[in-house]
């Protein structure tokens, strides 16, 4: 079999990588619909629910290969930068379980650090302009 020219191979690879990147970004920002329940499993059999479970964490990886439902969510998926990212607001401080909130800290100051460059849990309040 004749090998395609190198330029065709490079273009083919580039287009596939572009589609892959596009799919990943699209999947990250687009909430999934619930999976089809054509077997009517959830209508007749009660789900086991824990009333104390945290809201907004009802996500399941349905299948590694069903690409229109990589992650199922019962709520809107939001962009998240910080821990938990429940709000999707990258500037909202997230309480740390072992640290007191900023207003309760006295005489301490350390620069906040976050991989994205956003300080989401600074130990001091931002200076007013």
């Amino acid at each position: 079999m004749k090998t395609p020219p190198k330029v065709v191979r490079v273009l083919g690879l580039a287009s596939s990588l572009t589609m892959l990147a596009g799919y990943v970004v699209y999947s990250h920002v687009t909430p999934n619909e619930p999976p089809p329940d054509l077997l009517a499993l959830s209508s007749g059999i009660g789900m086991i629910e824990n009333p104390t479970k945290p809201p907004g964490n009802d996500l399941h990886i349905i299948s590694s290969k069903v690409i229109n439902q990589p992650v199922f969510s019962v709520r809107k998926v939001t962009w998240g930068f910080g821990a938990g990212s429940e709000t999707g607001d990258p500037f909202k401080p997230v309480p740390h379980p072992y640290r007191p909130p900023p207003e309760e800290r006295v005489g301490t100051w350390f620069p906040g650090f976050e991989m994205t460059g956003l300080s989401i849990d600074p130990l001091r309040k931002p200076d007013k302009p």
Partner: peptide, 9 residues
């Protein structure tokens, strides 16, 4: 929270 990993998944 899996929504932060949705793209990776």
């Amino acid at each position: 929270p899996l929504e932060t990993l949705a793209g990776f998944l």
